[in-house]
Computed example of a mutant assay.
Amino acid sequence: MPRRSRRALLAAAVTGFAGVAAGCGAPSNSSRTAESPARRLRGKSIFVADAVTIRVDDVRRVNDPTDADLAVFAATEDEETVRSALAAETIVAVVGEDARLTVERACDADGRSYGFCSDSWSADMNVVAAVPHSTRLETHVYTDVSVPDELPWALGETFSTGGSDCAGIDSLAAVPANAADSLTPVGASRIRSRTRPGGFDRWDRVQVATGPKRAWLVLETTATIVGGRDGFDADTVRLVDHFDQRLEGVDTAAHPADKVEIRTRGDRSEDAADHSFHPTSDAAHRSFTACQRAVVTVPELPEPFSYTANGRFRWRNPGFFDDDHWHHHTPGQAMWYLRPSDPFRR
């Protein structure tokens, strides 16, 4: 891991995901109602290690993880077993307090590009998954999952390809036209959680394009907030990214149907992308997706590529005299490992 910048060190001082809100504390499983489990698991073949307990129907159990659509391991599993499943193009999920470390080691041994959109660690990151693609791995971190009751929900989410609501909006910034055709995906990384007031789903996606004298790194973040529990509305999403590289351009969007006001914060001249998103319709107060795309340039591709990132989510429960707010953050430094075998390094 490279030596961190001053900004990154300041961000790393904030660990964990849950923020304290007025009248609220960390997320609690007891106040949530389980969503319909395992809808995406139906008809899938699943390997489940002996140390993992899972209650799910309508799936086909197999004895070999390399023959499964999804392999579920305990955090105590050795990285080589997990890596072998990834090599067979099996989605892997690891359950337990050290799930993040086990998956990260397996991804590193696999050899394909991968990343995590936050290097923060906490005990509630108890389900972590990696989804193999041809030249890259996609990582999922699920926080505060009650095992085994909510495990089917988290495992079903690994088959989701969400977070792309704004992918087709033309106003988002892009690299120069002469490099755009060579954009190559590095990977995607996700943080997903269900909290007392609702939930959130953050995706970071990185692409790379190279030219004769410099390279472009494109970061797209989509963050969905969901309200509707215990009287709480979706109130604000704020996306903050700090780069050590030169920030060439940044743009934001929300789906037009969501009716969301976007406010610019911070100073781009300091290589920072910082925007907040505020719903202006009843539908958006139930759920909306915020999108931010940033383009940075470098004389050569860094190894790894990192930036200080934070997704900040706020819910509001309107009161007669005062409103009650609930906050949740995803702080930390994003780390992306660009492998020598990738097309943009040839």
Score class of each variant (00 low, 15 high):
N63R: 15
A93N: 02
D69H: 09
R83G: 12
A87L: 10
R100H: 08
A74I: 04
A68F: 08
E80R: 07
V94H: 01
E79H: 07
R83C: 13
V94M: 04
A68Y: 03
G96T: 04
D50W: 13
A49P: 00
D50L: 14
E89Y: 11
L101N: 13
R60W: 11
G96S: 08
A85Y: 00
S84N: 13
A49Y: 09
N63C: 10
D98E: 12
A99F: 04
E77Q: 07
A93R: 02
L70P: 00
N63T: 14
R83Y: 03
A87W: 03
T66H: 06
D50N: 12
P65R: 10
D67Y: 08
V59W: 00
T102G: 01
A85Q: 01
E80W: 04
R105N: 11
I54N: 00
T76C: 06
E89R: 11
V95Y: 02
V95A: 06
T102H: 04
D64A: 15
R105I: 04
R105E: 13
V59K: 08
R61I: 14
T76N: 04
L86E: 03
A85E: 01
V82E: 02
T76Q: 03
E77H: 10
R55K: 14
R60A: 15
A68Q: 07
P65E: 12
A106H: 02
V103K: 00
T90R: 08
A71H: 02
V95N: 02
D67F: 15
D50Y: 12
R61F: 10
I91V: 15
L101I: 07
V103F: 02
G96P: 05
V92F: 02
L86S: 08
R60S: 15
T102P: 00
F73W: 08
A85S: 09
D98L: 06
V82R: 00
A71Q: 01
V72K: 10
D57F: 04
D78H: 09
D50E: 15
A85F: 00
T90A: 14
T53F: 13
D69Q: 12
A68V: 05
D69V: 07
V95I: 11
R83M: 10
S84P: 00
D98N: 12
E77D: 11
E104V: 08
V56T: 10
E79T: 05
A87D: 12
T76Y: 14
D64R: 14
A106W: 00
D64L: 13
V62F: 05
D78F: 11
R55L: 13
